[in-house]
């Protein structure tokens, strides 16, 4: 829990153009990506942004395609806000925050066109690959959205497609890699006072007056947006947030995914 006095301190320091931890408004905390963290998963990545920590595992399963897309594979994203990560998280079925987190990450990947779902077809109308992405939040120190999105992209880049023998998955043997045609990067921007900041830590999150996640792709286009939480943005603030997200998306892509 963050006390009112701490909240006021964070607001005041931001109003003077600084952040409590000394970062610039457009500066992320240190990002660390470890791919291949979980052996039994076909792809995985542990991502840290400052003290925030998210582990994503990808499991490849064989399943039936959706009737309207009989020759396309399926992407499923689920997020678990595990009770170890924050005193506010409780065990049980995913709540609205976990569902929103998973759905925004899903939208970013899906709409970016990164995955060629047609390539994941095994037998049209019968069997396709299902990419099951599970986001496991280990440590919530703010900005779970960007951490989850980066971890998901890293885990997908790490994903290998298992061999199929006698119509069964042969775990541990692979026929190839999952290809990504694009690197979607989510950038979350919050408003505190009249300032826009990237990568809020959990103390900053407690005083935000608006939060928006913008997902950009390689060519600088946008592929998904989600405004989240209570608090609105003027159109000008949104345009500014878009410029920030394009710039930050490029930086993260160039530094960690090239």
């Amino acid at each position: 829990m963050i006390t009112e006095i701490d909240k006021n301190y964070i607001r005041e320091i931001i109003a003077t153009g600084k952040r409590a931890d000394g970062r610039k408004f457009d500066q992320y905390r240190e990002i660390e990506i470890k791919k291949g963290y979980v052996k039994n998963a076909e792809g995985s990545a542990l991502v840290k942004i400052g003290e925030t920590e998210v582990l994503v595992g990808v499991k490849m399963e064989i399943g039936e395609p959706f009737p309207d897309t009989p020759d396309e594979g399926v992407l499923m994203v689920n997020a678990e806000l595990t009770p170890i990560a924050s005193p506010e998280f409780e065990s049980g079925p995913p709540n609205e925050n976990a569902i929103e987190l998973a759905r925004v990450v899903d939208r970013g990947v899906r709409e970016s066109g990164a995955i060629d779902f047609k390539k994941l077809c095994i037998a049209p109308g019968e069997k396709v690959w299902m990419i099951c992405v599970d986001i496991h939040v280990i440590n919530d120190s703010g900005n779970l959205m960007d951490a989850s999105s980066i971890a998901t992209v890293a885990a997908l880049l790490d994903t290998k497609i298992p061999k199929i023998e006698d119509e069964e998955i042969k775990r541990g043997e692979y026929s190839g890699k999952l290809e990504l045609k694009n690197i979607p990067i989510a950038c979350t921007i919050v408003k505190i006072g009249d300032r826009l900041l990237v990568d809020p830590d959990f103390e900053e999150e407690s005083v935000t007056e608006g939060k928006i996640t913008i997902v950009t792709i390689d060519d600088g286009s946008l592929c998904a947006i989600q405004k989240s939480g209570i608090g609105g943005f003027t159109p000008e603030e949104i345009y500014k947030a878009i410029d920030i997200s394009i710039e930050q998306g490029k930086k993260i892509r160039d530094k960690y995914f090239r």
Partner: peptide
């Protein structure tokens, strides 16, 4: 009255310029 956007979602690919036009 506040000229503020309180709900905004998007899915699909768009350039910044197209988005501006769309929001307007």
């Amino acid at each position: 009255s506040e000229n503020k956007i309180h709900l905004l979602q998007m899915d699909g690919i768009m350039t910044k310029e197209e988005f501006k036009k769309a929001l307007e």
